[in-house]
Amino acid sequence: MKLKQYLLSQFSNTFFPIFLVLFFITSIIFLVRIASITSVITLNIFELGTLYAYNLPNIIFYTMPISFFVAMVITLSKLSSEYELIVVTSFGLNPSNILKVFLPITFLISLSLLILSIGLIPKTKYLSQQMINQKTKEANFNIKASEFGQKFGDWLIYISKKDDKLYEEVKLFKTENKGTDQFIIAKNARLNNDAGNLSFILKDGKAFYFEQDKINQIDYKVMHINDTLSESQITPFTNAYEYWKERINSDGDIAKFSFYVLTSIFPFISIYLVVAFGYFNPRYEKNRSVAYAVISVVMYYLISDPLTKSIGLLSIPSIIVFWTIMSYFIYKLTVKKVY
């Protein structure tokens, strides 16, 4: 029991620094992506923090499998370099027993990553898109005075003065494919917003309709121009099962689902590689465990990414079987027959 606790404590001392460094780097990448949104919409500190919180499952998902696998390899290689694994082996804890020590925690990590990727990431993605859409709506009707190039739906709009949602000296222009142009002027106007459905109420003005051979003019007291703010189509999120059930027929979504599953179970199906790379005799062998671990991670992703896009769900059992057999073969060839 004390040997197991010792191995796990050594692992935790290695894992957390690696994970925190990768977490910090990945967080910066996501924060830059979030900051780029501010060129379109206005966000305060609280809203930026909320969007970052929605991206936390993604950050953990992309950093946890790599840091966990590399940390396990480094832990065993460090113990091997300091001759501690030789002592551990002399107490009866051979490579197979060491596998059993790390197997439960590896299984829990892979299971947690599955829940995170398949269940939580779609939910937070939906909440993030919903928030961005709402902020885009607010930005869309933030019309400023004395500025050209602003739009209200299909209309180009120019106003001289603005007081909250009251506008003075309003000009609207729209051109259509059939060669008909429309130009509207109004002394004042009011903008109403009902859950993204905008109504521009123009008062005391004129409307001009330009065609190839004639011009029509209409004088009006009150005119209503209605528009619905455009937004990206977001399917309401109910639960993870319904979410993936609706998207399982889409090639892109099948590839994403398969990638999520394969990335989540990577630590579990690579458990044999941990012992194969970390278990060595420092008197006769050089410590190349980190290089082997990095190469394994790169190989796994290079295999998974194209296969998930080409064969979809079949890539899950195919890669699991291939990677597990390959890992066990390397373990048997390098460690099991010696120790």
Rank of each mutant, 00 (worst) to 15 (best):
A291L: 15
V274Y: 06
V290W: 09
I295L: 15
Y300Q: 02
Y272K: 05
I269W: 01
Y284L: 15
L302W: 11
S289M: 09
V297G: 05
Y300I: 00
N281E: 05
F266S: 01
R283V: 14
V275W: 07
M299T: 15
T308W: 09
D305P: 13
P317G: 03
A293I: 07
Y272T: 08
V274K: 05
N287E: 04
A276H: 05
S304D: 13
P282G: 06
N287L: 03
L302G: 12
S270M: 05
I303P: 12
V294S: 00
F266N: 00
F277N: 06
P306L: 02
S296I: 04
G278W: 06
I271N: 02
A293Y: 06
V274W: 07
K309P: 10
Y301E: 10
S310P: 09
I311P: 07
S264L: 01
Y279M: 12
P282V: 08
S264F: 01
Y284F: 15
V298R: 05
A293T: 07
V297A: 05
S289H: 09
S315A: 14
A276V: 06
S304H: 12
V274Q: 06
K309R: 13
A276C: 05
Y284M: 14
Y292H: 13
L313K: 07
L307D: 02
V294N: 00
S264E: 02
M299D: 12
V298T: 10
P306A: 01
S310M: 13
V290K: 11
